[in-house]
Design a protein around this nucleic acid. Sequence first.
DNA 1: CTGCCCATGTAAATGGTTACATGATTGA
DNA 2: TCAATCATGTAACCATTTACATGGGCAG
Lengths: 178, 178
Amino acid sequence: MSLKYAMLGFIDMMPLTGYDLKKMFDSSVKYYWTATHSQIYRTLDEMKKEGLIKEELVHQTDLPNKKLYHITAKGKEQLTKWVKEPTELPPVRHELLVQLSWADRLPNNQIIARLENYKLKIEERLNMYEQENNNKFAHMSRTPRERFLWESILKNGIMSYKAELKWVNDTIKGLKNL
Amino acid sequence: MSLKYAMLGFIDMMPLTGYDLKKMFDSSVKYYWTATHSQIYRTLDEMKKEGLIKEELVHQTDLPNKKLYHITAKGKEQLTKWVKEPTELPPVRHELLVQLSWADRLPNNQIIARLENYKLKIEERLNMYEQENNNKFAHMSRTPRERFLWESILKNGIMSYKAELKWVNDTIKGLKNL
DNA sequence: CTGCCCATGTAAATGGTTACATGATTGA
DNA sequence: TCAATCATGTAACCATTTACATGGGCAG
């Protein structure tokens, strides 16, 4: 569901190809949703069948032909409806915590090594978010409120990785003092 | 992968049925992984085929017969190996943020309503975590270090929902002052 | 007599990943 | 001549959800 509407919102800003969408997912959308190109092309087909978008074939001479997708009236309507809908909190699935839950079978240094590796990955991710701060995504915003919303999305990621980082530091410290 | 090892760790503590495992997932494991009974039964079959566990049929007279699963030497070995393995950060998928990204098509009060509803769900979840604090799961721990690890798992959830709550409050405030 | 607990499963569908597959143009 | 960019897709697989399915015992 989310993927469909994540895509539809962009197509509503301007007509786009699957290729364009993939680039957007890799640059900015990745801060709140991820997708591969195979998923994007499949989802575009479904959206076309549902009448949310329509296809325009664009013939090019020196570049491969492409399919530009435009939003339909039905598409706009459905998007507006969807953004209002209450959703459930996602099911919790935290692989590192599963590992920690049975980590007592390891010597302390191996548990700590595992946590240090996790910490490194969180730090990398956090850097990526913070470098985005004066950001691609805010400069495309159509209104000040949209700009505020997009900045809030980025902040959500930053605060959540910061909290995770603090937790992992505390946990490492706790293990060392045990 | 995680599901398999989440289950295997419990079977390592004591022989269990699929039904037992489901109850554990619903009571404590849900703080770091979730699963339905259909998934659990299927995964038990796979684990049996892989030789990580073996099945013992238990005939009961006044209750339905059941299948108790025991861990094998291979199971223990694989579990120890798995808990050490570095893992990737999970792909980001945050449905509310997708909604926020296109919420500029709504009037302010509707965006705020959406966020208030989300806030309520976070608060409920946080309450659930905090009520677990003098907890089922710590009293089953086999060593002080295991107890520490299990408490850390719970703290991870608490800190992450607290951070989310702070973010949603800030975002609501920001929208009101815009 | 109703509904919960015990205890097991299967089938279909959804959503996502990974691998396979093609091919022209352009810049280093 | 090598790699990247543009541009599209399919197929197989894996993980998860939801719905379908059964049935005895026991407490209120």
